[in-house]
Amino acid sequence: MTFTEMTPRRQAQLMAFDRLLTIMDELREQCPWDRKQTLESLRHLTIEETYELSDAIMEKDLTEIRKELGDIQLHLVFYAKIASEPAIDPSARFDMADVLNGVCDKLISRHPHIYGDANGDKVVADTEEKVKANWEQLKLKEGNKSVLGGVPGSLPALVKAMRIQEKARGAGFDWEEKQQVWEKVEEEMQEFKAEFNVDTGQPIDEQRAEGEFGDLLFSLVNYARFIDINPETALERTNKKFIKRFQYLEERAKANGKALADMTLAEMDIYWNEAKTV
């Protein structure tokens, strides 16, 4: 399809992307700050922008989502620009066209139920679970040594636990019923309680207790997955709820001329319970 054959909206999208590429070229050449940046120097900024996008999504703030998507897109274009420059080893050099064509090729090869396999034959995958299973099998054929090899090592532990379990499920390694998972949660709870000596108050083996607590968290993440709850989202919503209520407590205490450090827990509970109704 030629540019003139595209819809006006698609033309506008391509022109906007071309505008960003042009601006990036100009900034990289003319701006002292942009000239100085490297792949490494941008890394922590990209992580920060990703968390800002996450916050906007949690708040369902579409205006902020649009803004943060723009910031992340800028970073992606920046990385590709740096990787296309003469300072990069020619054998490893790439630009944005290589990036986009690469991901397009991957999407086509990973969706044989839509585009067909290497022989042009459609592969049956009529459920989400079948699509995920096919995806993991195709990744192994492409050279991945393990189904879990694609889980980034630097992921936060809670997100990593969920991704590990999802990938294991894609390979057929999973519980059959959610009741089995809940029984595992209860088993891990008892093992953690035993290590913690809750009833006796005896000194604990901190390393063993930590291990059992990790097992308990992992099993809870597993159960959340079975009942379609994203544990990261659930915990973040609870974090935000706690912050909102605690800040209400602080404001009410201040309005009444009190400092939290001088209040009893019973006094704070009055404001805390008020916060639940606000």
Rank of each mutant, 00 (worst) to 15 (best):
D174H: 12
D174T: 08
D174A: 13
W175F: 11
W175Y: 13
E176T: 10
E176V: 10
E177V: 06
E177L: 05
K178Y: 10
K178Q: 03
Q180H: 05
Q180V: 01
E183V: 04
E183D: 13
V185W: 00
V185C: 02
E186A: 12
E187D: 04
E188K: 05
M189F: 13
Q190E: 12
Q190M: 09
Q190I: 06
E191T: 03
E191D: 03
F192H: 01
F192E: 01
F192S: 02
K193C: 08
A194H: 08
F196I: 05
F196Q: 15
N197M: 03
N197R: 02
D199M: 15
D199R: 12
G201L: 00
I204Y: 00
E206M: 10
E206I: 12
Q207H: 10
R208N: 14
A209G: 08
A209Q: 09
E210W: 06
G211M: 03
E212P: 00
F213E: 06
F213N: 04
D215R: 02
L216M: 06
L217C: 09
L217Q: 11
L217E: 08
F218Y: 15
F218T: 12
L220C: 14
L220N: 06
V221A: 11
V221Y: 01
N222W: 14
N222G: 14
N222I: 09
N222C: 15
Y223D: 04
Y223K: 05
A224M: 15
I227A: 09
I227G: 10
D228E: 13
